[in-house]
Design a protein around this nucleic acid. Sequence first.
DNA 1: AATGAATGAGCGTTCATTCAT
DNA 2: CATGAATGAACGCTCATTCAT
Lengths: 192, 192, 192, 192
Amino acid sequence: MARTDEKKERIIRVALSLFGQAGYDGTTVEEIAQKAEIAKGTVYLYYTSKDAIYRDLIVEAGKARRAYLSQSPREDGNVRLALARLITQELRFARAEKLYYRLLSSTDRNEGSEFSEEIRRIRREFLTELIELIRVGMLRGAIREGNPVLLGQLLAGMVRGAYQMLEENSSLTVDQIVLSILDLLWRGWAVS
Amino acid sequence: MARTDEKKERIIRVALSLFGQAGYDGTTVEEIAQKAEIAKGTVYLYYTSKDAIYRDLIVEAGKARRAYLSQSPREDGNVRLALARLITQELRFARAEKLYYRLLSSTDRNEGSEFSEEIRRIRREFLTELIELIRVGMLRGAIREGNPVLLGQLLAGMVRGAYQMLEENSSLTVDQIVLSILDLLWRGWAVS
Amino acid sequence: MARTDEKKERIIRVALSLFGQAGYDGTTVEEIAQKAEIAKGTVYLYYTSKDAIYRDLIVEAGKARRAYLSQSPREDGNVRLALARLITQELRFARAEKLYYRLLSSTDRNEGSEFSEEIRRIRREFLTELIELIRVGMLRGAIREGNPVLLGQLLAGMVRGAYQMLEENSSLTVDQIVLSILDLLWRGWAVS
Amino acid sequence: MARTDEKKERIIRVALSLFGQAGYDGTTVEEIAQKAEIAKGTVYLYYTSKDAIYRDLIVEAGKARRAYLSQSPREDGNVRLALARLITQELRFARAEKLYYRLLSSTDRNEGSEFSEEIRRIRREFLTELIELIRVGMLRGAIREGNPVLLGQLLAGMVRGAYQMLEENSSLTVDQIVLSILDLLWRGWAVS
DNA sequence: AATGAATGAGCGTTCATTCAT
DNA sequence: CATGAATGAACGCTCATTCAT
């Protein structure tokens, strides 16, 4: 089992890197096997298909993200702080686990109806958390009344935009960006 | 001649739909031909390659979007109004030309370095316009000083989020969503 | 008929040039039509197939060569002179009608069993003439007894070699080469 | 491994036969695979492309010919004898390795500029050897002064003609033909 | 007679998957 | 368990031929 899992581990590690760089169709099983230093056939001892690897990766990516997000406890009394932590963790995750993040954001292989509800759920976890916090904020009077789903979608979009920013302009830190976002949310950008 | 253009039209129309649903690699030329009710070889009378169809579609999508965006004149004295119009038009475009919008938003075939600068430029046109307007707003004192590129990315992300919202919750109108965005931008969401 | 033949003429003219340069498979009917400034379909009004054009060209090439060779009358009393004329005419033909000559020498599409006896006959006409002259020479005591077919093949080969020479080294004239060949035939290349 | 080389061997063997009969374009990879009793895809495990098979074959043919020619040592004191051996070996090669010989003589794929200098060189090796020997013969006074390149081309042509003879008239032996050629070269065919 | 748009069989090549060892 | 040779369906693309106009 130890041995076994080590090889399976190597396969997804490599697959993650390749899918992340070249996309699903741009990656061949041959390449995965080569970079994992095993034979092509061996891949099929651990995964039933190329697709199965991809699906497993998304599940893994979900877990990895959850590991980050769970460090921003929801039961915090202060919604603003809680949101700050949540977004910070999402961006830290995106930066540290770029490949996972890309997998979760990618539209690659998204549309094919073969993709399970489970995977769609994983992809939306962050959004769901945001919406929940916004709901709480409204209940507590910290956030003006409004449509929490809409606001959640807007905020999730902002975070995606923030990630783009991080990717292209490495001079900004995650904290600076998060501050900008919170400032925008609480004060708006109008003068005075 | 008339015939010719009608058939070319059918090809891209069908290709747009298929690329939009299944992505570039998930779509075959055979499928395009079948749905267009022509023979496979006929596709190549109108396009030199599958790739050429895709590129043409992106250029078309760029034009279609520009047709919408150009209806929100930049030289308006009021930045808030100008932004409202710009975003409204983007969302109208996204809603009316869903397939074009998806093509432009898709990360498909983005990673492969083979894609020209031209296409990347088309994909970013909306963002560029946003940043420009934000710059103007700052110059005029309508928007607090800040990093216009960052704010542009955040706003572009919000608009992507808004589109998600429209897709999933048809009870909201574009105008309502745009109002929410502007409200958020100018006042923030804090209570009073 | 005048009109008709003029177009048919254009087609083989162009086909000759293209087949000669790029070979049978390297030439498309489309190219032939374009260079002949007619529509692709029109080609099929004059020829039943691409192959038919090729076959016609070989027949034409045979006629063109015969036009040259017929200027070296066989009934000449002097075999050496007759041979000189025959070879000279072959080389003049090869030089002046390079494309025809290439078509006749080409192994392209030679092996496919579909090629008729007729065409094989055309391809060997020059050889046949050589053998005939050699036979006459032997009868008249001008050429030592021997196997005329073998000598004919050897001589035909020499002429092919002579053509190569002309192609690659334009400083030699046909007459010089023919003299060398005849000298070799009658005296050999031994010293004194 | 043993298996591997045996299969690769089967592929070129079959390809040689097919290219020799039908030419490059007249042969399909499918046919090669079928006659080799393997799947089409398997061909690509051993060769990167159809072209690569062809190139390999020409290189092989070159080696095979060299194996024959190298048995006619150049440093022989007697040029006539050396030439006799060289031509004998060329004809033996042509007879024993008919398919290789055809590949080397074929004009197929010669015109397309894509073919490397290397391959042209292989195709001309025999000619080059002939010219060299003729040069030596002239230096030693065994052959009358003349243009060695021209004489080489003529002689190479004679050998091609000799091969034709062998193909069509199996009653003649290589030795008889070589004797005829040498006789012609040294004495000419004039009576006495 | 002339067109050229349309066809579709066939090409060379790739690659996820299988299976004998 | 592991291998990697073998498979064959499927791909993008070409082009000789047909046919409606």
